[in-house]
Amino acid sequence: MSFPGAGLAKGLAVTLRTMTRKTVTAQYPDAQPSLPPRSRGVIALLEENCTVCMLCARECPDWCIYIDSHKETLPAADPNARARTRNVLDRFAIDFSLCMYCGICIEVCPFDALFWSPEFEYAETDILELTHERDRLREWMWTVPVPPALDPAAEEPKEIASARKAADKLAAAAAAALEQGGDAQ
């Protein structure tokens, strides 16, 4: 059986205890926040990987990605071959005033040209200036963190598996050739 007013005293104790503890306030502009690795701060573009396939622009739910490109004809490497054409990126811009940070563009990009960056300090005073061009998007690539390591028992990534398979095959072929050569001698 508790005495009357025990609840009131308990409340006072709670506030007093909180006062003696360390505060949880983050002094943001003075101290940078430590963001989790998958923070969706801004979308960065690795334009070397971009093939102007337009998938990102088409999948974007609010049409905030602008892409311009032209076709360029490469001279044929071989006199017998046809001349190849290739897409050259002229403009890649994301309007962050429209972007809702769904990340679909990053998901659909088949060539790993788009990445999440935790960078978030790109506020502007004019809404028009929130459309960031490819140079700025490229700059943000430097802030993209290294992808997290795989789980210890995880399946090997496909590209590494296929590359290793090819390398194994090559090594096997080389070993076989070496053996044949040894036999010939």
Binding site: T18, M19, R21, T23, V24, T25, Q27
Partner: peptide, 13 residues
């Protein structure tokens, strides 16, 4: 300040 710290905040800084 007291109110801030009792609520786990810092208050005016």
């Amino acid at each position: 300040k007291v109110m801030a710290h009792m609520q786990g905040r810092l208050g005016p800084m």
